[in-house]
Design a protein around this nucleic acid. Sequence first.
DNA 1: CAAAGTGCTATACTTCGTCAAGTGCTAGAG
DNA 2: CTCTAGCACTTGACGAAGTATAGCACTTTG
Lengths: 114, 114
Amino acid sequence: MDAAEYCPVHDAIQLLQGKWTLHIVRSLLSGPMGFNELGRAVGGCNPATLKARLDYLEQLGLVTRTVHSFMPPRTSYELAPSGVDLQRVIDAIDGWAREHLPETPALDESAAAS
Amino acid sequence: MDAAEYCPVHDAIQLLQGKWTLHIVRSLLSGPMGFNELGRAVGGCNPATLKARLDYLEQLGLVTRTVHSFMPPRTSYELAPSGVDLQRVIDAIDGWAREHLPETPALDESAAAS
DNA sequence: CAAAGTGCTATACTTCGTCAAGTGCTAGAG
DNA sequence: CTCTAGCACTTGACGAAGTATAGCACTTTG
């Protein structure tokens, strides 16, 4: 029944397992970005999903959306403090990846390597 | 620009963003488990998805599948060393969650006014 | 014996993410 | 001035990913 007593990790995992969530956070760690710019930085996320993730992350208070002008459209997405703290997680993943994923091209596309 | 350049983090994120992957690893950190046992520990993952994730993780060398007997079926899944190292990641997530997700019993669209 | 549990597969179904295109607008090139 | 390119999205069809449920071959437990 329980199998997993309630703990915040569960929620966090639930949060982070979204398709592009981690990629978005990671890209955003480099600094604020516009919508399309972020989309390109993330590397091939379509606007629909990107918007969905962004909305979710904003609602959770991890990112901040700032509209500079409605017309011409100018918006920037930025990590809120709680979002910046995800750096630790990204960092841990990074460390793990560097240790255990030397070169695993067995994932999918990304032919732009090297 | 970035994100196009090959980096292990990208792959790692790709790996970990699967629906139940992190949950599985987390459950497996407590020790080896059987298939159904693991399924229950993870908390509501159907066998098809579970098998898919397990196969993927095994193929990547993160978990080890040991068949003790064919009939009656007795199998145990265990984290390989590289899988155990994911403890760090889970840990980071845990730390973050405890700091920034104090108590969110239902994380759907509840506007946390904070 | 019947019920429950083991690991796992098969089928049908739903939800999520994706692709391609389009919207309203404006800044810069020609 | 016109024409293209870019911005931040939105929409709607489509396919993949994940889900529910049932079942197999077999043992253990009641």
